[in-house]
Design a binder for these strands. Structure first.
Lengths: 127, 127
DNA sequence: CATGATAACGACAACGATTTTCATTCCAGC
DNA sequence: GCTGGAATGAAAATCGTTGTCGTTATCATG
């Protein structure tokens, strides 16, 4: 059981209410480097002994995504989420290993505001 | 009712059987510039008076995607497909208007084999 | 501290896209 | 013309996600 309180200022900063459930979801997300699904977050919270409902996890992720705190990706037909250091950037998402890298470069492509780049990372490519 | 026969060599080239249903699906795809969903393809075939089943449309799209004839994207939680001029390239997909552009440039990003770039196109950006 | 408006919760039902099942039909090669 | 494997299609099953609705927490005020 980590100190969920540390996320309060984060939620306050983006202007959404810092409820206990949202703090728990944030805390669960922070424990992963790879994006995770809503169901996975829910399962982990259950294992931890929390009684947070699945519906609530979905809504927490939706509001936090909208607020820009979290980024949503698609992997194998399901939505997966990842806590991200906000700001202007795009993501490189490997289709094979799921790894995500954040990039700052502007104008990756002429006049197209890139948000997510799906492909295959160098490591997975040589196999 | 277009001449579906023109697709036969295409299917033969990628090594999958040129069944009547697959030809119909290809023909339906070819009528669109934007990616379309399996359900949409199925509906259009129904309207045309074909009795192709939805299951078959899904399977046809899957096999053709695997064969590289068709490219699959994700839009609003559903899979959408687009006929594409094969070869090595990546796609720019606008999240707003759904427009897809094919690009040939290699190494869009250092050592990352980009396949799909999701973002916002120039036209949609200024609104 | 009590109160009331509002946002958030959570259990459950409902939805919708996709996949599985399984019996039937089609095709290519013998 | 047979025959085996691939393809088809109708219906049921799956499964992630969203809607419903009564309950509860939160926050600003009196």
């Amino acid at each position: 059981m980590a100190d969920t309180e540390r996320w309060e200022p984060i939620l306050a900063a983006v202007g959404i209410r810092a409820t206990n459930q949202r703090l728990l979801v944030l805390d669960a997300l922070a424990a992963h480097r790879l994006p995770v699904s809503a169901q996975r977050v829910h399962a982990e919270l259950q294992d931890r002994g929390e009684r947070t409902g699945l519906t609530t996890v979905y809504r927490a992720l939706a509001s936090m995504t909208e607020a820009g705190l979290v980024h949503a990706f698609t992997h194998a037909g399901e939505a997966v989420y990842r806590l991200c250091g906000s700001a202007e950037h795009h993501h490189l998402v490997c289709r094979v290993c799921g790894l995500v890298a954040e990039r700052e470069e502007k104008d990756l492509v002429d006049g197209f505001r890139a948000e997510e780049v799906y492909g295959i990372c160098a490591a997975c490519a040589e196999r």
